[in-house]
Design a protein around this nucleic acid. Sequence first.
DNA 1: AAATCAAAACGAAAGAAATCGAAATATTGA
DNA 2: TCAATATTTCGATTTCTTTCGTTTTGATTT
Lengths: 253, 253
Amino acid sequence: MLAEQRRHHIMLELQRTGQARTSQLAENFGVSEVTIRSDLEILDAKKQLIKTHGGAIALPAGSPAAAFEERMNRNFDAKRRIAQMAARQIIDNQSVVFDSGSTLLQLAMQMPPVTNVVVATTAMNIAQHLMYRPGLDVHMIGGRVFPNTVSTIVSDSDKAVGGLVAHQAFVSAHAIDQSFDVVDVSEDIARTKRNLVRMARRVILVADSSKWDIGASSKAFSLSRVDLIITDSGMPHGIRSRLDKLGVEVRYV
Amino acid sequence: MLAEQRRHHIMLELQRTGQARTSQLAENFGVSEVTIRSDLEILDAKKQLIKTHGGAIALPAGSPAAAFEERMNRNFDAKRRIAQMAARQIIDNQSVVFDSGSTLLQLAMQMPPVTNVVVATTAMNIAQHLMYRPGLDVHMIGGRVFPNTVSTIVSDSDKAVGGLVAHQAFVSAHAIDQSFDVVDVSEDIARTKRNLVRMARRVILVADSSKWDIGASSKAFSLSRVDLIITDSGMPHGIRSRLDKLGVEVRYV
DNA sequence: AAATCAAAACGAAAGAAATCGAAATATTGA
DNA sequence: TCAATATTTCGATTTCTTTCGTTTTGATTT
């Protein structure tokens, strides 16, 4: 049986029962568990299922918002620690820009009490989390709404927040490729991140270690444009030594 | 059963009954209570439930969101009928602007299937309702976020959607005073409505009859600027006869 | 209020199952 | 055949789960 066909059958099984165990699938198809795991990883990357410990579960039915919630849980612990460290960078009387994404939502949820801070964001869920907090002035950056991340696509940063120049921008990465460029799945999203970066004097990148050395189609900006990288220490050794030589401040949590 | 799926089922049980006991869950899933407790701890850390002695309870409904729900239910039937009529004004290949508020959210929820329609709105809840719909291009109009209505305050319409000129604007009223001006509680909100109206060639006002002949501090715009008023017939007779003489098209639902 | 008691929760340690990384081997398609 | 892709093997690591003794909690009684 061809690999592609086997993956299709995995999807069928998953749609039938809602879950599938690695061990079970390996036995059924007569291949090793490692092979099944790589199948699941591929299907997960295509957002056709959600890989879990021991197997995989079907995507939550209906709302893609539920799917976002599920993805929020991935690498949750690393994201939380990264967000905690990032939150400490925010001080009173500052204006900050928040990108969208699960790590940034975590950051919003962990934000310490501050006074007179302006937050501008493209993410609706972040705006809704922060808008009731005292001491915060929350601005939604307008643009076309992108359902996957519940956030807006920004075409031109000048018009974004009336020419606001922020002290700091907190940006996440979908992936970081071999030449140390922050890349994303579409030019729209890449351009948005590029514009957010342009809005701030200091750029802080938050990225858990699963993002390193992965390619994607559209370049957003180079790591050299970043002032501080907050990540966890789970990336391959080669990456880490190159990163330390780059001259950008890196903090491992 | 996979661990991840068990946690999902715990959430379902919690949403159904509002609470769950550790002992009960352990028995149902056939695992030890320690395992259930670790599940609850993980879910608690993700703020999906609140762990208590003996089990867990569902998250309390957010108070400000609940207040909006409350407003939504007031005069619900009239709002729904008004929204239905308003929805019929939207046709293919148009661009429309939606104000925020409960009647407009109703309108978004009742929107018929259309193709190639651009919707620009200041209301985050409306944007989130519409963003998954095919045939729609949803734009969030940026600005400072106003918690009461979960929407943005627009300071300058020119910068709002890159100079978008819409075919129609659907605007709600907080109140309409004796001189037939649409008025609101703050200058910020009034200015926002004024800007939305300015963005469109045709203005449609949706207002249930409880809004008539009530004063408020800040004028948004005059009724003479409106092309079509959709309301129910519950207002005082004096108002209605004056309204019919105004020269603006009025539909009663 | 203070004392009491059973149920529940916690901590640590250990066992089992599953995953990951890397290198070796097999299969496929031009 | 060659190169690219798929698959397996194997040891190290992580995650999940349970057991058991101790501590905490919440309700009841004094």
